[in-house]
């Protein structure tokens, strides 16, 4: 039985490198599918409203703002990651 064999393989302890890579690839694609949607307007508007003195300059030109955001920030996931100890206050702030 094909299904039984697959279950046995999967349940029999550690996954093979091949299986891990395959799962990782799908996970990354599912995740990136959302990331590629970028920043919805509601969040640009939200942070714009909270940042009054810049709103006037940016409100009429969302594409310029988006370009600036992209240019200044670049790849936010790769660079500049620091040790977790660097944000010790986060627990309190979110509770």
């Amino acid at each position: 039985m094909q299904t039984d064999a697959l279950i046995r393989k999967a349940g029999g302890g550690r996954l093979s490198r091949e299986d891990q890579r395959r799962l990782g690839d799908i996970l990354q694609r599912v995740y990136d599918d959302v990331v590629r949607q970028g920043v919805p307007d509601r969040f640009k508007d939200l942070l714009g409203e909270l940042d009054g003195h810049r709103e006037g300059a940016d409100a009429g030109n969302p594409s310029a703002r988006a370009q600036r955001d992209g240019a200044e920030q670049g790849s936010h996931d790769s660079g500049g990651l620091v040790e977790a100890k660097a944000f010790p206050h986060s627990k309190g702030s979110a509770s």
Partner: peptide, 29 residues
């Protein structure tokens, strides 16, 4: 998460990992 972060921005240390800080807030929420 963004509203909490803005309200507590004083507890964010400039130069540290904003993304990790926001993820922590979102997870706790």
């Amino acid at each position: 998460t963004l509203l909490r972060a803005v309200a507590n921005i004083d507890s964010f240390q400039p130069g540290t990992n904003m993304s990790a800080w926001l993820f922590t807030i979102l997870r706790n929420l």
